[in-house]
Design a protein around this nucleic acid. Structure first.
Lengths: 114, 114
DNA sequence: TCATACTATTGACAACAGTCAATGTATTCA
DNA sequence: TGAATACATTGACTGTTGTCAATAGTATGA
């Protein structure tokens, strides 16, 4: 759609979120940012994210055991992290492989550090 | 209590939270981090934080109108932000004055950028 | 085509969170 | 002392969220 550039990440992922100290947030922007932080606001999802961030790629099937949650719960959480743009998944064969989106993490970090 | 040093912020505020990519998080650490992100996961609180961060100090009474929320709701949200260590308040006369805790924001940023 | 394996979706339920009216507490000022 | 003001707490209501069992979807391999 429109004019894709040479970057591989969606523009909306990076082109987002002014720093918290740069004047009052609009309701819209606050809502978008709240979604991201909401994705990070659950212990299971944070541990999941740290597991994925510690490897290049992690299979969904490799998350159930360390997190001690059922398969539907794992699927639920990966979905929320993905919708927030924090991880991205690719299906290969029967397996779903997840990796973090470092650009997105940096965006969130920048919100708080400027 | 114990031996206060020359820093003005509580140690627990800064001495917290290993980066997300540095190996699997413990359940305890994940819980602590989830509390912080939970405080940031509401649009009203984010707008509130941005209002406070844009000034040196902001009175509770100055938040009701721009946020369009009732006084108890404002009080509820400031409490949650304060419990997460993101803002600190001081009562002077009848007024409660809030300011951000920049060290805490930096801690959270570091979680995501390392 | 059938059986198996990995993931997603649905439905249900309990726990939690955001909101406000009513009330309580503390401070200022007459 | 009393009235007024700013904030906190309580209680109630509603909507959201985390969880899992059951089920559906999809890919692999015999």
């Amino acid at each position: 759609m429109s004019h894709p550039k040479t970057i591989t990440v969606d523009e909306a992922v990076v082109n987002c979120c002014s720093p918290i100290g740069a004047g009052a947030l609009s309701e819209l922007e606050a809502g978008d940012m709240a979604q991201i932080f909401g994705a990070l606001s659950d212990p299971a999802r944070l541990r999941m994210l740290s597991l994925i961030a510690s490897e290049d790629e992690v299979c969904s099937c490799a998350l159930e055991e360390p997190l001690g949650k059922s398969q539907p719960t794992i699927s639920h959480h990966t979905r929320i992290l993905a919708e927030a743009g924090l991880i991205a998944g690719e299906k290969r064969g029967r397996w779903m492989w997840w990796r973090v989106v470092p650009e997105r993490l940096k965006v969130v970090a920048r919100i708080l550090s400027e």
